[in-house]
């Protein structure tokens, strides 16, 4: 067997090959591939192999929050199920099969979310979206296919490179939805025109707050101030067992540098939006209040 299996490369390849795949799923998929290739012979070996790969992934990928959700989920699944089988071979094949089943289900969950989120979009709505999110995009297109007539305001989500914001506008326009693009600093200006706000998430924290592309927090605050509903659309495998109190608690810490000379602006890509600004989370488990997230997480981890 190939001894130098590069987990990070596999992960990045999965992401590249399939533009529709999310980071946690890609992580799980690469872990499953690792299991297929390496074929560990004891459970101890399996666990050390997996935890090694996971820590390698987490350190080598700069934006590891949503990835770690997938890794932790898979690890949890492995730890819980290894002792269920009497013989080792069936256990291993079962793990691989289950991992693939999980990936399959996760891919379907986006459609399920679109189904669940449909009633939230009504005729004549003006929907504000932020940055590019596959789930949100999928939901909006599905709503349009169901002949709901609505318009979308799309922010530029400036420093975020990964989520090319015009992708969102481009995809929606191609589907036939009228879209207006605005600068991020114009959110406050247009907030009173908006009926509801939809954002995706990189990760959903235990409090129900979300980790998302920069700009979501201010959007949440403005929406709350204007009494507009602020919905988060996210798959349940993006739920992470972390509880940040503010942006400082995210692993992506960046200090402000003060200087009297001219310096280019340092960019930050992710930020934390506390739960009090979120009206509801539209997930494949149903529509949840922010406080229900920790319930789902505890169920996932302590069942």
């Amino acid at each position: 067997m190939s001894s130098e299996f590069d987990i990070t490369a596999t992960y990045l390849r999965f992401l590249e090959d399939d533009p529709d795949i999310t980071m946690p799923i890609a992580a799980i998929e690469s872990l499953v591939t690792l299991l297929k290739i390496k074929q560990p012979s004891t459970s101890a070996e399996l666990i050390t192999l997996l935890s090694g790969a996971i820590s390698e992934l987490k350190t080598s990928v700069p934006n590891a929050i949503s990835l770690s959700a997938g890794c932790d989920l898979f690890m949890r699944f492995v730890l819980r199920n290894t002792h269920l089988y009497s013989d080792w071979e069936s256990c291993r094949t079962n793990l691989v099969e289950n991992g693939q089943l999980f990936i399959q289900r996760a891919k379907e969950s986006r459609n399920k979310i679109a189904e669940i989120g449909l009633p939230f979009i009504k005729d004549d709505d003006i929907v504000l979206v932020h940055s590019y999110s596959r789930v949100v995009c999928n939901l909006l297109i599905r709503a349009f296919q169901k002949h709901i007539r609505f318009r979308v305001i799309c922010t530029e989500a400036r420093p975020t490179e990964t989520a090319k914001s015009d992708t969102m506008a481009y995809l929606l326009r191609q589907a036939g939805i009228p879209v207006a693009m605005i600068y991020d600093s114009e959110v406050g200006f247009f907030m009173h025109k908006v009926d509801k706000v939809f954002v995706g998430a990189e990760g959903v924290a235990e409090s129900g707050g979300i980790i998302n592309h920069i700009g979501s927090y201010q959007m949440g605050v403005l929406a709350k101030n204007a009494n507009k509903r602020f919905y988060v659309v996210a798959e349940s495998h993006k739920f992470v067992r972390m509880f940040p109190l503010g942006p400082d608690d995210l692993s992506i810490k960046k200090k402000l540098e003060f200087s009297t000379e001219d310096k280019p602006i340092e960019t930050r890509h992710l930020e934390f939006t506390p739960h009090e600004y979120i009206t509801a989370l539209i997930t494949d488990l149903g529509v949840l209040t922010p406080s229900a997230v920790s319930e789902e997480l505890i169920k996932m981890w302590y069942d």
Partner: peptide
């Protein structure tokens, strides 16, 4: 209260009944 830290993890105060149940 921002969060409650217990041995089974951190949670918002609204999730106390969940812990009780589990």
């Amino acid at each position: 209260i921002q969060k409650v830290i217990t041995e089974v993890g951190s949670l918002p105060p609204s999730s106390v009944p969940v812990i009780l149940r589990e």
